[in-house]
Simulated scan of single mutants.
Amino acid sequence: MKRKGMLIILSSPSGAGKSTLARRLMAWDPTLRFSVSATTRPPRPGEVDGRDYVFRSRAEFEAMVEAGEMLEHAEVFGNLYGSPKAPVLAAMAEGCDTLFDIDWQGGQQIKQAMGDDVVSVFVLPPSIAELERRLRARGQDSPEVISSRMARSEAEISHWAEYDYVLINDDVDRAEADLETILSAERLRRFRQPGLSEFVRRLNAEFEAR
Results as ranks from 00 to 15, higher is better:
Gly68Gln: 09
Gly68Met: 12
Glu69Met: 12
Met70Cys: 10
Leu71Trp: 03
Leu71Ala: 10
Glu72Leu: 12
Glu72Lys: 03
Glu72Asp: 09
His73Gln: 11
Ala74Pro: 02
Ala74Asn: 07
Glu75Trp: 05
Glu75Ser: 10
Val76Pro: 00
Val76Asp: 10
Phe77Cys: 09
Phe77Pro: 01
Phe77Val: 05
Phe77Ile: 04
Gly78Ser: 00
Asn79Lys: 04
Leu80Gln: 05
Leu80Ala: 05
Leu80Cys: 07
Tyr81Thr: 02
Tyr81Trp: 04
Gly82Ser: 13
Pro84Phe: 11
Pro84Met: 15
Lys85Arg: 15
Lys85Asn: 13
Pro87Asn: 05
Pro87Ser: 09
Leu89Trp: 01
Ala90Pro: 14
Ala90Phe: 06
Ala90His: 12
Ala93Arg: 14
Ala93Leu: 09
Glu94Asp: 14
Gly95Met: 09
Cys96Leu: 15
Cys96Lys: 13
Cys96Ile: 10
Asp97Trp: 01
Thr98Phe: 01
Thr98Leu: 03
Leu99Asn: 01
Leu99Ile: 06
Leu99Gly: 04
Asp101Thr: 10
Ile102Trp: 00
Ile102Ala: 01
Asp103Lys: 11
Trp104Phe: 15
Gln105Lys: 12
Gln105Arg: 15
Gly106His: 02
Gly107Glu: 03
Gly107Ala: 07
Gln108Gly: 12
Gln108Met: 08
Gln109Met: 15
Gln109Gly: 12
Ile110His: 06
Gln112Trp: 00
Ala113Cys: 07
Gly115Tyr: 00
